[in-house]
Design a protein around this nucleic acid. Structure first.
Lengths: 186, 186
DNA sequence: GCGAAACTGTCGCTTATCCGACGAAACGGA
DNA sequence: TCCGTTTCGTCGGATAAGCGACAGTTTCGC
């Protein structure tokens, strides 16, 4: 029996898979050397051994590429430790928070950059919100995402060498118990 | 001004370069896991993320691929240390011999194999002979190649963990001084 | 300011790769 | 031996990638 129409449509040309991987790896490689701002599409195409026109066949510009890159990487990282299977909310958020901080830490080498950092944070936050939607309402998921990503980005700038555990534990505590329990004594 | 006919002919399509590298890397990778004999063209194509038909567009069969692979690798290795610039024959052959033994050592992980070993030795010897042709007559170059490759392959099987230096020095001594000086006392 | 150089998107045409299929050959177990 | 399976080498048609060129924009040294 031959392949069905659905199967034929679902399967992607291996050339496409390979080219996209080459382009993504190229950007990752370049981000280890230069700031995102200073990287041109030509740079990426050269590093990927791919024609510049081919780049545009896959991504509208370098920002779209960065977006896809971060989105996939953070999604993969979020799945680690099976946080959605955690017994209670506190341990689930602890795992998620640890993953976010670990993800941020793994991009420490990326130059601070006018374009990079905002997109990095925004995309990470959006992905985290999506990830939390099965467990929380939309508003709650956004709040949690903002809190975690915000503190992670702050940690990246302020004290990236300090241990993330106490910060994560603190944030999770506030989120779970409510701000009232964490209010300063009068 | 546009590119000349010669330039146009000389420059190869980047896809060709990339595909050939993928295929070669795939074989190297597979040789670290299986014997050459047990590796099919399909295996190589899969590992290289390349279609099987594409493989045949570049190499007539897996033996031709292995041949090209060894030829290039050994040629690169032979150039190390600039042996052709050495002041005297003895030091030149010492460098060449060391390179050959190092090359053999770097392929220790390759499984012993009915097909692999003979081709490995033959191709290595042919390349070495070519390499020596500017410095020696054809017959002499072949003799040196046979001696070095033969002892290297023997070393590979007998005592691959022992140091190659004394063996190389010994072979070179015999080649340079002549067998007479190395004849056993009556 | 000004001109050179680099970058950006986009286009039509060429070419290498992908795919499915084919018969032939090699191999191995019943 | 015979038959099922795998591999081989090759083919024609479909498609993604390469190429050079183009006008428009930004960048940067003078």
């Amino acid at each position: 029996m031959g392949t069905s129409v659905a199967e034929r449509a679902a399967r992607v040309d291996p050339r496409v898979t390979r080219t996209q991987k080459l382009i993504r790896d190229a950007l990752v490689s370049l981000l280890g050397e230069k700031s995102f701002e200073s990287i041109s599409v030509q740079d990426i195409a050269d590093r990927a051994t791919v024609n510049r026109a081919t780049f545009y066949a896959h991504y509208t510009d370098k920002f779209a590429l960065l977006d896809a890159l971060i989105r996939e990487d953070v999604a993969a990282r979020l799945a680690e430790g099976d946080p959605l299977q955690a017994s209670d909310t506190r341990s689930m958020l602890a795992i998620v928070g640890t993953n976010i901080f670990a993800f941020v830490a793994s991009h420490r080498k990326c130059r601070v950059d006018r374009d990079f950092e905002p997109q990095f944070a925004r995309t990470m936050e959006a992905q985290l919100t999506d990830f939390l939607l099965p467990s929380f309402g939309h508003c709650t998921a956004m709040l949690i995402s903002s809190a975690l990503v915000g503190s992670a980005m702050n940690w990246r700038h302020e004290a990236p060498k300090s241990s993330p555990e106490p910060i994560v534990a603190n944030i999770v505590g506030i989120l779970v118990d409510g701000v009232d329990k964490h209010r300063k004594a009068p």
